[in-house]
């Protein structure tokens, strides 16, 4: 337990010094701000572009606050997820390759503590980034468009955060087993995209997939009422635990 704390401090310090704690939140904040601003000013932007014939009438309805936040989450679902995969693609394989994993594991450190500290750091850092990005989106939506229902916003935020943590956990597990960081990032990102697509194709039967959380979050914001997500959340929790176990198995210091 003590060792876990020491490793967690190390992870967070590393994230701070290598800039991960700066650029990952920056990506989310940028994505979070673009959506409400562009939703509000889209008519002006199009008008200013000036390539329209004289007298053209454009009617772009300004979306509802919940819809804007939902669109923000969709943005997070592509670029945000990619950023997370890139941030964590080498978290174990990199340390294995340069020997720092061995440096840690020749000391009386349980492999679970090693992986768990990385996972906790992931939750905290992704949580921080997501909080800033989503919070920023919510603030600007309130300012520019209208007040969204706080309870729905909170529930959706939580569900979406769980989905992001799931993707991050997949990346950690992949980096424990796949030697090349790019390979790990690609596998995790591809897996996340496939899950989302499959969930979209078989909407009725596969709502229990972890990507169901993502859909529930976005649908909840659009409709103002969150569809049931308990099953998807339980499945995600089980998957996260299984992935951590897989990562622990792969996190031996021996060369790949």
């Amino acid at each position: 337990m003590k060792v876990y704390g020491v490793l967690l401090v190390k992870e967070l310090r590393e994230a701070l010094r290598t800039g991960k704690l700066i650029w990952l939140p920056a990506v989310f904040v940028l994505l979070g701000l673009i959506q409400p601003i562009s939703a509000k000013f889209m008519p002006d932007i199009i008008a200013a572009a000036g390539s329209l014939p004289e007298g053209a009438m454009i009617q772009i309805p300004i979306p509802k606050p919940g819809e804007v936040l939902g669109q923000t989450l969709s943005q997070f679902g592509t670029i945000g997820v990619l950023a997370i995969c890139l941030a964590y693609m080498g978290t174990i394989s990199g340390e294995k390759r340069n020997g720092t994993a061995a440096w840690i594991l020749v000391k009386p450190v349980a492999r679970l503590a090693y992986v768990a500290s990385k996972w906790t750091a992931l939750c905290l850092i992704v949580g921080f980034a997501f909080l800033l990005g989503y919070g920023g989106a919510w603030y600007y939506t309130n300012l520019l468009i209208g007040v969204a229902d706080a309870a729905t916003v909170a529930v959706s935020g939580f569900l979406y955060f769980a989905w992001l943590v799931f993707v991050g956990t997949v990346t950690i597990a992949a980096s424990a087993w796949i030697r090349s960081p790019a390979g790990a990032a690609f596998s995790a990102f591809g897996f996340a995209i496939v899950l989302q697509i499959v969930r979209g194709l078989f909407e009725n039967r596969l709502s229990w997939l972890p990507s169901g959380l993502n859909n529930a979050a976005i649908a909840g914001l659009a409709a103002g009422e969150t569809p049931s997500w308990a099953v998807a959340a339980s499945v995600t929790a089980v998957c996260v635990m299984a992935l951590i176990t897989i990562a622990v198995k792969g996190a031996n210091a021996a060369r790949l």
Binding site: T18, G99, T100, W103
Partner: peptide, 11 residues
């Protein structure tokens, strides 16, 4: 201490 000691460069 391994042959090529590895440390975290940022520490």
């Amino acid at each position: 201490l391994p042959q090529q000691p590895a440390f975290f460069g940022w520490m």
